[in-house]
């Protein structure tokens, strides 16, 4: 999702600069997210381009990444690029309930704005997205999942 910066995505957790040395902390979105290596490379290259040669990228696993961390600017950028932004992440206390019914979300089509949409699949081209189809304009679209 190149329209999002690492800040927009909520992956960039901390930046410390001292005496020309920069330590950046990121939190991966999903355990197996293959984009983490690219995010790390991008950070190192951008910082080097900006004149910081001494760069360290650290991983922070706690707290786990949540789709709530996607910024307002990020949500707007998603919508502008035809992706549906996540609603509030589920919160719970106690055991995780089993859900035998299909996921229901109140979504609007990011292309035409209609709210008549149907879930095609809970799993999309990347771990963070579900697939939908707009019944009104008939276009498929991706929805960033709540996690």
């Amino acid at each position: 999702m190149p329209m999002l910066t690492l800040v927009d995505l909520g992956v960039l957790r901390d930046v410390q600069a001292q005496d020309g040395r920069v330590v950046v902390t990121i939190t991966p979105t999903y355990s197996g997210c293959p984009a983490v290596a690219t995010m790390r490379d991008d950070l190192v290259h951008r910082l080097r381009d900006a004149g910081f040669d001494d760069v360290e990228v650290r991983v922070s696993l706690t707290p786990a990444w949540s789709s709530d961390w996607i910024s307002d600017r990020g949500r707007q950028a998603l919508a502008e690029h035809g992706l549906s932004a996540p609603g509030p992440a589920p919160t719970r206390s106690g055991p995780v309930p089993l859900s035998l019914l299909p996921v229901r979300r109140m979504l609007t089509c990011p292309r035409c704005g209609a709210d008549d949409v149907e879930l095609t699949s809970e799993f999309g081209p990347t771990a963070c997205k579900a697939l939908y189809r707009c019944v009104s304009c008939l276009e498929p679209f991706e929805h960033v999942k709540e996690i």
């Binding site: 991966p28 999903y30 355990s31 197996g32 997210c33 293959p34 696993l61 095609t120 699949s121 809970e122 799993f123 999309g124 081209p125 771990a127 697939l131």
Partner: peptide, 20 residues
Amino acid sequence: LEEDIALANIALDLLGQSRL
């Protein structure tokens, strides 16, 4: 195709857990 993608996604999550 949907189940193909779903199973690959689930496998990827498990691979990520395993690696860590």
